[in-house]
């Protein structure tokens, strides 16, 4: 069974002459251990694709299954629960809470969800991401790369089955960007996650098992490499 499956997912904004077909009817599936890139220029529908996949907005038509469960039927409250349990978002802009230090960012998740990573796994995650020394720092004191690594830690701490990253390297220089991709790659393989990275940055494709192109809302498989 696919971890994430989209069937004939279609998204239309507006109507009449303001109508935008942000996502043409799309079929897509992703499995455990896959790191997938979706590459396309600005306005091509990448974020629309990712937010529908992550249950942040419903499609106009079609179905989205997460671990076999159709989430298009659910209301916002139920989708919010799915997001908390199954999805880890890594976003372009920092998604850190400014008044919590790194360690507290994780504690916040403990307040809203029980079965997060055990202490030794979290410790491992901190090691992998190289943020062990930053636990008492606040977001304002972190560099762009550090913030992004903390954001990844936050996305992974709830032990989600799917990691969705929207332009995770946009604010980083090349070295930092590659570092982040390496980490995503390592985590996807070692913890058997499903990771989708949408980006306009073609330098990142080397890290991925599958690369899709998206232009004007049309998704097409470009390359597939063996895992």
């Amino acid at each position: 069974m696919s971890v994430l499956e989209m069937k004939q997912v279609h998204k239309v904004f507006g109507s009449g002459h303001t109508k935008v077909e942000a996502l043409k009817p799309t079929n897509f599936s992703a499995n455990k251990g896959e790191l997938i890139a979706v590459i396309g220029p600005s306005g091509s529908g990448k974020s629309t694709f990712l937010t529908i996949a992550g249950g942040l907005q419903p499609p106009t038509n079609g179905y989205v299954f997460i671990n076999g469960r159709d989430i298009t039927e659910l209301n916002e409250k139920q989708r919010s629960v799915i997001r908390l349990k199954e999805i880890g978002f890594v976003l372009q802009a920092s998604n850190l809470v400014p008044f919590l230090n790194v360690n507290q960012q994780m504690q916040l998740l403990d307040k809203v969800k029980k079965d997060n990573l055990p202490a030794e796994k979290l410790e491992e995650l901190y090691q992998t991401l190289g943020i062990r020394k930053l636990l008492n720092s606040f977001p304002a004191d972190l560099s762009g790369g550090e913030k992004q690594r903390v954001a990844i830690a936050k996305a992974l701490y709830t032990n989600p089955s799917i990691i969705l990253a929207d332009e995770p390297t946009a604010s980083l220089d090349s070295d930092r960007a590659f570092e982040v991709m390496e980490m995503l790659q390592e985590i996807t393989t070692n913890s058997n996650k499903t990771t989708i990275v949408v980006t306009h940055d073609t330098r990142l494709i080397n890290y991925c098992n599958k690369v899709y192109n998206i232009t004007d809302g049309r998704l097409s498989l470009q390359t597939e490499t063996a895992q």
């Binding site: 919010s80 629960v81 978002f89 809203v112 969800k113 936050k154």
Partner: peptide
């Protein structure tokens, strides 16, 4: 925007 990000992550409005 902070609340929005937390909600995206699945933290409920209720919390």
């Amino acid at each position: 925007s902070i609340f929005g990000v937390m909600k995206a992550q699945g933290i409920s409005s209720n919390y």
